[in-house]
Amino acid sequence: MIAVIDYGAGNLKSVTNALDFIKARYKVTSSAEDIKKADKIIFPGVGAFGDCVSSLKKKKIFDVLKKEIVKKPFLGICLGMQVLFESSEESSGIEGLGLFKGKVRKFQSKTLKIPQIGWNSINVMKKSELLKGVADGSYLYLVHSYYADPDDEKIVLTKTSYGIDYCSGIADGNVFGVQFHPERSGEIGLRILKNFVGLK
């Protein structure tokens, strides 16, 4: 069973619809017990970095998540990826889960529209089960103003170009984070979710 983390910030319908469509078994939850029992975790982030951290703490799953993420396949989506890092320019002074060293930064541009909204392509930086069957240069759907900037280049799974080449996906063992929305990225997105669901 997959635990889909719901910390009360928003709508998880598109994620659960996609999981239903690929016939995955999951439970939408904010309980520490469920997270411990689950064999995989999907963490769709909605809202702001600071609010997300404080909601996780309020629901008493911040520390649980930190421990469980490294024990089983984990997929953080959008803010769910960003929160794996130490801090974010969006909410200064707030510590994230800190699983990875690095900071979440805001796009800086006078010419580009912010947030980035729409389909952008990924450059695949390394081989991964998550992207099995997903071609280099595939387009995925993104909506964001902030991006993760990891200290360790080795965890970078994909890069995307928007004014700069930024990290749009990370992979470290079974811990995955993607800035794009697989649940909104058509066939390719469903493929990525299927790959994740199929991980051992």
Partner: peptide, 8 residues
């Protein structure tokens, strides 16, 4: 629609 189409 949301159950069958996975684009925004």
């Amino acid at each position: 629609v949301a159950k069958k189409v996975f684009i925004p």
